[in-house]
Nucleic acid binder design. Sequence first.
DNA 1: AAGACGAAAGTGGTTGA
DNA 2: TCAACAACTTTCGTCTT
Length: 316
Amino acid sequence: MTNMVRAKEKSTNKRDVCMSCGETSFTEDNVRGENICTSCGLVVSEHATDNGPEWRAFTTEERNARARTGAPMTLTISDRGLSTVIDWRNKDASGRALKSTTRAAIYRMRKWHIRSRLHSSQHRNLSIAMSEMERLSSQLGIPRDARETAALMYRKALARKLVRGRSIESVVASSVYLACRIHRIPRRLDEVVAETNVSRKQIGYAVRLIVSRVNINVPLASAKDLIPRLSSDLLLKGRTVKKATEIIKNAEERFVTIGKDPGGIAGAALYIAGILEEDKRTQREIANVSRVTEVTIRNRYKELVRVLEISINVNS
DNA sequence: AAGACGAAAGTGGTTGA
DNA sequence: TCAACAACTTTCGTCTT
């Protein structure tokens, strides 16, 4: 049973108790101007602006500026601890032994009761996980198909009993991150970690565990995937973008990209392409958007120029 | 003054014994 | 589990435009 509570629908009645989980403390999110429940992430805000679901975002900044928090489902637990208990003794309420036919019936009920309980515990886990996944992927601006992959990933992890002993949140975060890798959506692990309450270490561990135990081919992050995002942040021309993609392709063919931060490679390729196409950006500008330092951009671009034998005229 | 350069020291993650 | 290691960062002085 899921009951979607939209922040915009409830925006008129501000409360000091979370309507979803009863938590009383809230985090103020200045970026979006919202109050967020620290426990379940429900947005409780009086002046939450409804940006509408039709927005498109091409850069990280845009996405962060426009994103709405996906309201989590209410965590309605199926029985609230009021579950039925079937005694194992074959006695009725007054202590008399049961008739054999009744005993057989009770036996069958017990069997199905236990089976359904097992089923519902998994079900419950899933419903909690899916609501958390919905929140996380809305926050990160993950498209529908990647969310499906993430959900599938989580189900597989759950089926292989990988969630037991780990927090649901960490496995959810890993699923979302891996789905991004599969769909070649440029999201760093750090970006995913930032939206959760779990440590990077735990999530990183869960990621590796899932990769090794779930039979899904996860491609490595390539610098190429970062190019669209970075170049739109830098307002580069189409030609420059194309050139940078070529440079990366050549570099990958010569195996000089292995083990290097994709951000550095992508940044360096854009720097070189910028000079070649007379659409230059400074190392600092590129470093800022690609989340590496100027030094790394420098090192990578020197290396690319050397390996690919590109002659660039710095004075141009 | 801004941008580029590179050296040196420090950091967090991976690998192999 | 620990040490070695590569990649990357931070910091800073120098050079060029």
